[in-house]
Structure formats: structure tokens, C-alpha cells
Design a binder for these strands. Structure first.
Lengths: 202, 202, 202, 202
DNA sequence: GTATAATCGAGACGGTACGTCCTGTCTTCGA
DNA sequence: TCGAAGACAGGACGTACCGTCTCGATTATAC
């Protein structure tokens, strides 16, 4: 009477099925969009019974979240877990944001991350996980870089890095998410300049 | 073939039904959330035939968008269509953002606007309408105010107001939408200060 | 608030769908057997939504029962609602039972009636309906004929016709239902002879 | 290829499990009915793996058939394998049929035997086994008793005992199976009288 | 008295069907 | 002619079982 129905045995889980489900979920979201992606469709495409999905995940959002995390974990393996620090804060931030722009425009990432972001807006549980697993680690890198810059005297000492980073990160995020404007390298360069030196004349 | 199927006679439209549908849609989104809000449910609650909804709107997102626009139009009627201009840019921005914070925290607005924002992230058509009808007019007020400030020499002449406003608006939007952090008056005050005077020491 | 969800409006029912469902149900039972006949299969074959079946019937047994009743009603229209009465009771009974044997061996009737009988054995509700709608009316004809014969002095006056008829009807029914033996014209002739004149020597 | 998959080693079979499976199957059929009795349910109740069932039986009908045979074998051990022969055919038949009536009304036997009969109606394989293992041996006892009576001159010499027995056995069977009428001692007494002495006046 | 091989409890797996809910279209009837 | 009502074809939901399969962990002969 140890094992409950609701907690399946992880050690006997089929790795093969999990991979197939990740692949199918990502492919379907990319091909037909999130709303038309169904659990039934994922199961069929993965060659898997529906129950195998419901056994390990609670919803299609949950499946996609894990699938996307898996995808980014693979990609993240190659990158260093820190922002570059050449001593030139503006240049470093611009470089990183340019890379982010490129990633946001990569159709391979666009469909699933947009879908997850949308789901997260409306579904608090998914939203929290999305932020905790994907967004926050990225933002923390900016915090670290800004803290270093502050120590080097390139940032005012009373500035809170966690808020400061939003000055250039959030505008990009909003333009992408809500399509309030185009995103480009020039745009993010401008954001960095504005943020570092302010709008008011010196 | 006089009357086409796709263009019902607007003059005969029942105002009564439209109001009932708006109310039902907003109430349901607030009560059970957007995903569990269905066209059938709206019709039943409004005491209306389903066809009456499909005759005038194309989807539940469309219904909710109009319902929400109607709601905000009522509220907006009382406000002036411009930001205050006391001559003190920082103070004016802080005041407006404080009001925005209050509105974002108002549960009456939260459910539907969050729902629409989420739908817009994933559904380009809805997204464009949402931005055009709700977001862009608001942002334009900031553009106007910043332009006035620039003329008054309180903002550097080379600054693009459409980008500049994102430095304090987008961080607030992202914290609210994606729950990346708490929002408060102190927070938006800080955003305005950082944005106007920059992160780098003077 | 007159009409309840559970009582759909009969007057708006689609005759077309009903016929298609009857046909599909009977065809499927004949082709693949009762256990492999599914509501989903009936709906697909009839070109009908599943809900249209569940709206009007409670189970596949219920569908099949009505479909079969409809089938027999069509056939029954041609027959007279009484057994022949030539004055020769034995001959009349033999003739009717021979016809019954032929019907029981007709594959068009076999599959659905066997299915219904089986369901009725285990499902009291279906069983009662099956008996009331199909069996009992038939048996009543024997009761009438036996009563007439009793009046004519061909049957002992103290004999209960409702029990008497079972002496030749039930053996045939059991051989067919439970496959306890072959059925043929010779067999039913013998049953009539045994039943009328008894097993004991005269 | 020494050992075939399809022929498990009988000598290593767990007697304990078999008993538990019989008990679980009979209990479930009695409690929830045959259709709601599942292989999975039997396995869970018996504290047995599903494969242990599928290793030794081919279907739930097969399990129940064996379980019921086992049950009746226990009961039959106490009875003599022949009908009483007091010299009075009518009395002997009435006594046996009264006992049968009692058994048919015993809820312990009713659920499983009804379930098996129903399955047998629709599933020829099960039907044949059910008849061969349970019905035919019983009927053979009647054949023997009638043959003895025929030798004693109490039954017409040209009467076929295999058909004759159906005159009183089948009506009882049909009333029970199809609920076409109540069953009682008085009823079976009447059947015997009618069958032995016929319906026609002497 | 151990090897050793099959059975055992357990339960994940690919599937199929269930019965429910909702979509978007269509038809009927009343105002 | 529009509105309330709701039947319709269709399709996805999440659940329950099917029958197969793969896991250690007992057994219980056969060495």
C-alpha cells in the first residue's frame, strides 16, 4: 500500500515515449499553432497512447513546458552561464540583446515560447513555472553583470540591478509578446543607450 | 439576392442582447476564467441564442474584446484624453503610472484584460486589435507628453519618444503580465527615475 | 424554464438521422457482431455525431432494440395479427412453428435478435422491453389460438394456454438461444405432437 | 525452441492465485454485474497481476466459466449423479424440477449463471462450452430417467427422450432466462403434468 | 542445497471506446 | 427579418480497460 495510483513509477518510464512526445508537441505547435495542438494529436503523432501523456503530465501546457525546457537545456549546454564582461557595459549588453533578438525571431523557438508565454499569462501555475525555469535564470545573468558594473563604478551605486535590467529587457519582451513594435538590433542598441544614460539631458 | 449572409442588418440589431452578451462575457471570464468561458455559456447566461452571438462576432475572443472595449470606454469617458502636464515630467509620469498600477490591480479589469492579452500573444489577429484599440491610444499619450517635455528641454532632443516611453511602461507591463515581480507605486516611481536619469553615474 | 436539458424536443428530431442510425446499427451487428458494435462505429457509419445518438438513446442496446423493433414492425405490417385457424390445431401450430424456424435461421434477423436476447438476459431493463415489445405479442397469438381450440374441445378444459404454449415454443427458443440442439421443421413438428398428446401412453 | 509461449508450465501454477481469481470473479459478477466486471478488477481484487490471468485464461468469460464450474463442482460433489427413480415418473420429475427452481432463485448462482448464459448466446465458443460443461450433463440425467420410464412402459415407446425432456425443462429455462413469466414449484408441477399427459383430451 | 528458470505481483505501454462538452451551422417558431 | 431555442455533424476531452510487455522478487522443481 505504498504506491498510490496517482504516483506512477518513474523508474519504469519509457524514455523513448517521452522523447517522441516532446518532439511531437514541439512540431505540432510549430506547424498548426498552440490552440490547434491537441493532446490527442500529440499522442497520435508520437505513436503513443493518450494515457501515457496523462500519466506523466496534467495538460498540454505542461507537456509543452517540459518539451521546451528540454529543448532549451540542450541549447544551453553550449553557452556559458554568464554574460560577457569586457569592461564595456554598454557593448556587452548590446551584444547579448542582439543575440536575444535573433533567438526571438528564430521560428524554431517562436511558436512554443509564445504559446507558453500566453498560457502563463492566463494560467498562474504555468506562468510561475515558465518564469522560474526560463525567464528568471536569464534575468539573473543581467543582475550579475550589472552588479559587477556597479562595483566598477559604471552604474550608480544606489541602482537596484533587478529593476535596472528591466529598462532594456522588458521593452524588447513587450514588443515581441504583444507586437507593439518591430524588434531589431538597432532597437535594442537604442534601448541600452537610453537606459544607461537616461532621457533627461546631462 | 439582396441581402448577403455575411452582412446582417445592423439597424435591426437588438441593443438589449448586445448589452446582455457583454455583461455575461465579462462576468464569466471573471468567474471561471477565460479558457472555461464558452460561447454556449455566454449565450445561456445572456439569455440569448447562440446564433445571435455568431451573427455579430466571429469568436469568443472577439466578443470579449468588444465587451472590454465597451467597459473601458465607459471608464475613459470621465478621464481627459491626455496626460497631465504640470511642467514636472517626472512627477507627471509617476502620477499616471501610479494610477495604472491601481487599475492593473483592480480585479474588475484584471481577468478580462489578462485574458485578452494572452489570446493576443498567440492569436495575431486578436493581438493586433487589442494593441490598436487599447494599448496604442494609451501609449500615444505618453508620446505626446514626452514630446512636450522634449520641446521644453527636459528630454534630450535626439530621444525617440515612442521608444523612450517603453523604459517605464514595458517593465510594468511585463511584471504584471508575466508575474516576474511585484508592482507598486514605489516600483513605478523608481522606474521613472531610472529612465529619466539613466543608470550610469552623471 | 419549461424544457429541461434532459428532454430534447421530439418535434425537431431528424428523421433522416434516425433512419441512418437504425440502418447502421443493424448492419454493424450483422457484420461484426454485437460486442464489436460500438456507439462510435454506429455514429460514424450513419454519418452522425455521437451526441445525436446519446441525445435520443441511453445505450447501444437501446438503439438496437428500437432499430430491431422498427425492422419487425415493417415486416409485421404484411402479416395478419393472428395465427391461422383451419380447425386442425396440430397442423396450424406446425405451420406457424415452421415459419418461426425459417425466421430464426434468417441471418438478417439472427444477429440483432440474438444480441438483444443476450443483452436482455443480463440487463433487466432491456430484457423487459424486449419481452414486452417482441415476445409477448407473439405469445399472445398462441394463447388466442389455444383458447379457441379449447372452446372447440380440442384441448382439455383445465389447461392454461399461457403455460401450454411454452411446451412447444420454449424448446425451440432454447435450442436456438443456447444452441442445445439443431432446429428444423421435423423437430418442431415433433414438439407439437408430443405437447398435444403427451409422453405417457394413452 | 523447447518451451512454447502458449503453453505455460502447469506444474508450477499457483493454486493460491487460482482460487483468489475464482473468488474475485464470482464476487464481482455478483456485486457489480457481468458487464462491469473487468479483468483488471478481478486481478486487483484477487491481489494478482493481470498477466497471471491472461496466462491461464483467454477472456473474462473464460475465467468466469471456470470459476462457475468450480463452484458447481463443489456443490455437485454432494449430489448423486442421477435422477431419483421411485417408479413414479411424474413425482420424480416434479421433485427434481422443484430443486432446480430453488437453485435458479438462489442469488449465489443467479448472477454468474445468467452472465454466462448471456455471453453464450452471443459468443458461440463460450456458448458451446457452457452447454457442454453445465447444461448437457444435467439434461443427460433426464434422458436416462426417461429411457428407464420408457422401458417401464410409462412413456410411449416412439418418444425421443432428448426431445421429450425439453417439454418441461425448456419452459422453465426460458422463463428464467428471458423473464417471460414467474417460476415456482406449482408452475413446474403443471409443466410435468402437461408434458406427460398432453394438452389434447384423452 | 543450491542453481535456474518459470511464475508471480505490479504496472507502463499502444490502443480503442466511452460518455461529455463545445464548436459553428442550420432550422423552426414567435414577435 | 431578427431573436430565442436548440438539433445537428464533428471533434477533443479525460477516463477506463484491453491485451502485451517488461520488470525484479519469489518459488519450486531439477541438478
Amino acid at each position: 500500500m505504498a504506491t498510490r495510483k496517482s504516483t506512477p513509477d518513474t523508474s519504469r518510464r519509457s524514455e523513448r515515449s517521452r522523447r517522441a512526445i516532446y518532439d511531437a508537441a514541439l512540431a505540432l505547435v510549430a506547424e498548426v499553432g498552440y490552440p490547434k495542438t491537441t493532446v490527442e494529436g500529440i499522442a497520435a503523432r508520437a505513436g503513443v497512447g493518450k494515457q501515457t501523456i496523462y500519466r506523466w503530465w496534467s495538460s498540454k501546457a505542461d507537456v509543452l513546458l517540459e518539451a521546451f525546457l528540454d529543448l532549451t537545456d540542450q541549447a544551453a549546454g553550449q553557452e556559458p552561464p554568464a554574460l560577457p564582461d569586457t569592461g564595456d557595459l554598454a557593448a556587452d549588453l548590446k551584444a547579448v540583446l542582439r543575440a536575444t533578438v535573433d533567438e526571438l525571431l528564430d521560428p524554431r523557438f517562436e511558436a512554443p515560447s509564445r504559446a507558453l508565454a500566453a498560457e502563463g499569462v492566463v494560467n498562474e501555475e504555468v506562468g510561475r513555472q515558465f518564469v522560474a525555469a526560463l525567464l528568471e535564470p536569464q534575468l539573473q545573468l543581467y543582475v550579475d553583470r550589472l552588479r559587477a558594473a556597479r562595483s566598477a563604478g559604471q552604474v550608480r551605486p544606489e541602482v537596484d540591478p533587478r529593476i535596472a535590467l528591466e529598462l532594456f529587457v522588458s521593452p524588447l519582451a513587450q514588443r515581441w509578446l504583444q507586437r507593439t513594435g518591430p524588434i531589431s538590433h538597432a532597437y535594442t542598441d537604442t534601448l541600452v543607450d537610453y537606459a544607461l544614460y537616461g532621457l533627461a539631458p546631462r
